[in-house]
């Protein structure tokens, strides 16, 4: 079986969807759901997916039910809509439009990053430190959800295919066939975006990150130098 491809920009050494050998293509499947499916169909698929996850991972449902009653919005950056996950006594997953509904907390990242997170292939704190994961609202709700997911081994590609029932194998084949095209299309879009951007534009994420890292480093060194100087001054004042 062919491994699926990663579309996200992840640092070297971090496992990505590229490493999969199980033939699952969760990212492409997710994008098919997001791009090709009208919202009612995607909502139906999400409902089926959650029911299927509950059957395959009863402990996941129990862990979600053990959490406080909260609504967390999970927002894949490239998709036109997101997912509202309700924790507490009656866990529930539904599709929502951007900015729709009242969330206790929200998590936003690329679909690839979110997929890897759900599958336990990447650490959410590392992503947060690097600012590849945007977190807002009630942190306890997000931490609880992350820990509930991290207890289970979930293969999202297989789960989505299972949730689609008889359409699953067809969707998988479709995902396999369009995945390289999706990757090429996204690469082209990024290249075009870069070409249209003026040189050294500060909104370039990599450059901005580098500049900010340098700024933080300089600020830290300045602070440290200040402390050393203050200490030295105190020492000199104390000296006879």
């Amino acid at each position: 079986m062919r491994p699926s491809r990663a579309i996200s920009r992840l640092p070297e050494g971090i496992a990505t969807t590229e490493d999969r050998q199980d033939g699952a293509t969760p990212l492409a499947l997710l994008k098919i759901l997001g791009i090709a499916m009208p919202r009612p169909a995607a909502a139906f698929a999400a409902k089926r997916l959650f029911e299927s996850l509950g059957r395959g991972h009863p402990q996941l449902l129990a862990n979600l039910a053990a959490l406080e009653e909260r609504e967390v919005h999970v927002l894949p950056a490239e998709l036109p809509y997101g997912f509202a996950l309700r924790t507490g006594p009656r866990p529930q997953l539904r599709v929502i439009g951007r900015g729709e509904g009242q969330a206790d907390a929200a998590v936003e990242a690329s679909a690839a990053v979110l997929t890897d997170l759900i599958e336990g292939r990447i650490d959410s704190d590392t992503l947060f430190f690097r600012r590849d994961l945007q977190v807002t609202g009630n942190t306890a709700a997000i931490v609880g959800l992350r820990n509930a997911l991290d207890r289970e081994t979930i293969r999202l590609g297989a789960e989505i295919a299972a949730a689609l029932g008889p359409l699953g194998p067809l969707a998988r084949r479709l995902a396999h066939s369009i995945e390289p095209a999706l990757g090429r299309w996204e690469l082209r879009a990024r290249t075009l975006q870069r070409a249209l951007s003026p040189p050294l534009r500060t909104s370039d994420p990599a450059l901005t990150a580098e500049v900010e890292r340098c700024r933080a480093e300089v600020a830290a060194l300045t602070a440290r130098l200040g402390r050393i100087e203050a200490r030295q001054q105190r020492r000199e004042e104390r000296a006879p």
């Binding site: 947060f128 430190f129 690097r130 600012r131 994420p205 901005t208 990150a209 580098e210 500049v211 900010e212 890292r213 700024r215 933080a216």
Partner: peptide
């Protein structure tokens, strides 16, 4: 507070 791209904590 963290500027865009600055590592968070």
């Amino acid at each position: 507070t963290f500027s865009p791209g600055e590592p968070a904590a």
